[in-house]
Design a protein around this nucleic acid. Structure first.
Lengths: 203, 203
DNA sequence: CACTAATTGACAGTTACTCTCAATCGGTGT
DNA sequence: ACACCGATTGAGAGTAACTGTCAATTAGTG
């Protein structure tokens, strides 16, 4: 048996983490080189030198290799520690800023890459939207705790919905210029969207 | 050749429509009886007395049998004919009302059924979210035309995002009481959400 | 140096979906 | 009636994403 909580990762855990990272890296590289659909799980497994079975043990679906919600988890964490005098939207805006600035350059690079994948592959786009909906629930819960209301309060949920809605609109440029990798950084657009919402969505 | 536009459907078209409806009805029935995942396309095809190939000719994926966006298409159509003095949100609210009241009882019943399916099956939920994102684009475009702005205008897209966001939050009660089929009708919740947004999301 | 539990790989099976090709059916002109 | 053409269909083979099982290996423990 193990004592209780792992103080040091231990060789086993480190190996797992390495395998996980290796699978992800090889997968993203292959997606970049051949496209998402053209890349099979078998190819990824072979490139990462593991069996296909092992691939599915680390990532329940092929989609999950791309969909890694590090960022919004960070944002929610930071949301809780925002000063109480900020409005919900303002607090979330500050939290988003925290989350983005805490990312390393490498993290940011893969974030950009996975983002553009999500924008282009319909399958992934769909799943990402599902994550958004989960985010509504999380925000609503966090916001409810801040304002001392019920998490199922209609108004609170509505505000959470509006926040996620404008983020969706801001991070979702797949109308025309999808390919010309927007010079404006993702974060700037999210920040502007939240500012606009904070101001009451003036036209 | 045919003259130009079909004035009367013609036997061929009617048969197609009947086949399409039959597939859908049998599929929804089987989903209700056995669950979505437990029902195979082969079973649906057999029940509807067509070949599996034919199933895929009518519905590109199994998910598409459930995801039928009649309602929001109607809403967008009605949106264009709303009086110009209404705000974007108010106009959309009126359009949603139009769309819902134009549905027959049978349509409404299947709408309720597909809705609850979408709420419970993760696969479908994800796809539905993708439809929501498409809706943002459509609303943004329609709203841009109303206000004489560019469809890519940041503020316009943001408002569209907020509209879809509050609709998502309102139609998405899968937190606790998912199963106890909300007495409040879907439309009432959407309407309340839009009203709340129209009022500036007061807490 | 055993012993145990976690991790892994090989393998067989299911199912959604694609493609191709021949047969059939609806609509039109003679 | 009859022939013709294009649309619709069914059959069947093939691909790839998963799922489940079972034996072999490997990390951590006494």
């Amino acid at each position: 048996m193990k004592s209780e909580a792992d103080q040091q990762p231990g060789l086993r855990e480190r190996k797992k983490a390495r395998t996980r990272a290796s699978i992800r890296e090889h997968a993203l590289r292959l997606f970049r080189e051949q496209g998402y659909d053209a890349t099979t799980v078998d190819q990824i497994a072979e490139a990462a030198d593991v069996s296909p079975s092992t691939f599915f043990r680390y990532y329940p679906t092929k989609e999950d290799v791309v969909l890694q919600d590090d960022v919004d988890v960070l944002a929610i964490g930071s949301f809780h520690s925002q000063p109480a005098e900020l409005s919900i939207v303002a607090a979330f805006r500050a939290a988003a800023k925290d989350a983005f600035t805490s990312l390393s350059d490498a993290d940011l690079a893969t974030f950009q890459e996975t983002s553009s994948l999500i924008f282009t592959v319909p399958e992934l786009r769909a799943r990402a939207m599902d994550e958004y909906s989960r985010t509504i629930n999380v925000i609503a819960e966090a916001a409810a705790r801040r304002s001392g209301r019920d998490p199922n309060d209609f108004a609170v949920r509505n505000v959470a919905g509006a926040i996620v809605g404008v983020i969706m609109a801001a991070t979702m440029p797949w109308t025309d210029w999808v390919e010309k990798s927007q010079p404006t950084h993702m974060f700037d657009r999210i920040d502007a969207a939240l500012a606009h919402l904070e101001a009451g969505l003036p036209l």
